[in-house]
Structure formats: structure tokens, C-alpha cells
Amino acid sequence: MSIEILPAAQCSRTTVIPMIKEISIATAATTAAIVAALAFPHVAELYTLINVTIFISLCVLALSLGLVWGYGGIFCLGQAVFFGLGGYSYAIASLNFGDTTYGVAASLLVPMIFAAAVGYFIFWGRIGDVYVGVITLTITLIFSQLLNGSAGDAYVIGSVPLGGFNGIPMTPPLNIPGKAEEMLSPEAIFQVAILALAAAYLVCRVYLASKLGKTMVAIRENETRAELLGYDTRVVKLITFVIGAGLAGAAGMLFANSLTVTPNMFSLSITAQIVIWVLIGGRGTLLGPLVGCIFVQVITTQLGTSGFLNPEIILGGILIMFVMFVPSGLVPALRQVTERLIRRPLKWRK
């Protein structure tokens, strides 16, 4: 790449265009979400609707790691923990208090508080790259072990048994705040889910546009330099980590609404999948994790049900191919291609 000094007009264009682009992307995303939320329940069957709701909850989960790893550079293998904690605390709080409003609050607060504790432990210990991965992976394994072994009468929170391998079967669907008897229909839950996805996207966008978010990206690029410039990198990393945990908790809450909560939410295979979505979609983008998540889900369900290949082979093959041939991920690669196509005629005109 050659470095050239841009004329003033072009300089201002390069700073203004991304801003306009960003605002237009955000508006387009919200509009699309609202349109989809209103229109889709009328055209889809119930089965498809519930499946799509699950996809959306997984998209929120992908987005959370996209923020923490893609932008923050924190290689977190514990996103499944926050996802599972969100699901479990939603189920437990809702069943204990009889109103899912408390469940929703718990599904956000519990993962965030836990993430704050873990993050304090990790970032104040100055633990870096791979070692963060190992510690968070270990925490995932601990939860998986504990909850799989939580069958029996000894493991009860309030009035809710944890149920070991089977999880909590009677997870209640969302109700209108304050009115426990008015439960939402699957159509309404779908609408809640898609609005939650849009909200999660906006939270990430706003955070990344803020000063904190920009510092976070600077830390990802060069932590020592950011520290020498006077930023407390530990605090910034911790905040990113906690926001990511909150998003993952929300994803767990949505997931619990469509399926039941089981220790599977903490499993190594979920952990692997989240990483794969973000890697395939592209680190350092917010659209990428969503694209990656949908791409992988569609391919594994389509090819997996055909019976010829099992999902593991497909997932593994895709992951190897991407690491080796498209290491930046789908969205950045496509963006590069389109930008090249758009720029070319401009250069000729000169």
C-alpha cells in the first residue's frame, strides 16, 4: 500500500462519508428490524417463527463476542457462561417471583456482575491474550461441570430445582410487565427478540462511537502505547467485557424464551460456535458476527438435515477454510471487493 497525501477536499470527504455511512447503516438497520418485526409473523408458520427467534437470540450472542473480541481484542472463551447465566437467572428469577420482569432484570444483571468480578480478576492481574482464553475457557468448564452435576434435591434455588442434565424444563415465556398472567404469544416474543437485536446493535454502535469505545480499539491495536498515552486500559477493557456479558445475558434470556435452559448452554460446542461465527463474519465489524451466525446456522441445518454430512464436518471444514483463506472474515473481504469495484472508475476519471 502506498501512502499519498490527500488534497483537503478529499480529506474532509473521507471523514464525513464514514459518519454519514454509519448513521445511514444504523437507521437502515432499525427500519429493517421494525419492518421485519411487524411483517414476518403474518407470513411465517409458527415453527419457522420460533426457529427464527432462536436464530435472533444467537445473533445477539454473536454480536456480544463481536464487540468483546472483534473490537476489544479480548479473546474470551467464556461468552457461553454469560449466555447460560442469562438463561438460568431468567428462568430462576421468573419462576421464583412469578413475574418475568424480574427475570429479565436478573438475566442482564447477574452476567454483568459476574463479568465484573471475573474481569477485575483478569485485567488487574495483567493477564494477556491466550491466557485470557484459558481462564475464561476454564470458567466455562466449571459451570458446565457444576450444572451437569446439579441433579437432586440438594440443588434448589428458591423453589426452582436446577435439574442437572435436564435443566429447567418449565421456563415461562415473557409476560407484560406487572401482569404475570398475560403471557406473550410466540409472535410477540419474536417481535421482542428482533427489537432486542436492534437495540443490542445500537448499544454497540453508540459505545464504539463514544470516547471509551475508541480507546478500546486503540488498546486492541497497541496496549502499551495506549497506556503510555495515559489511558487506564484495565478499566476500559473491564467496561467492554461487562457490556459484552450483558448482551450475552440478554441473548440467553431470549433463547430461554424459545427453548428451555439446559447445561448445554455452557458447553464447549456453544463456545466454539460463537468464536466461529465471529471469525467467519469478520472481526472488527458488527455486521460480520450477524452474517457469520446466520451463514453457519443456515448451512449446518440445511446440509445437516440432508443426512450425507454431519454438522461437525461442515462446521470444522468451514472454520479451517476461513482461517486459512479468508482470515479477515466474510464482511471485510466483501467490503474490500466492492470498494475496489467502486474506486476503479474514479481513478480512471483522473
Binding site: 482464553g133 466454539a272 471469525l279 461437525e312 464436518i313 470444522g316 471444514g317 472454520l319 479451517i320 482461517v323
Partner: peptide
């Protein structure tokens, strides 16, 4: 690590 993770699934 990610490539070998894929290999593991494969």
C-alpha cells in the same frame, strides 16, 4: 488454535 479447533470438529 482456531484452525485446529476446526480440525477437531472435522
Amino acid at each position: 488454535m482456531l484452525a485446529t479447533w476446526g480440525l477437531s470438529l472435522f
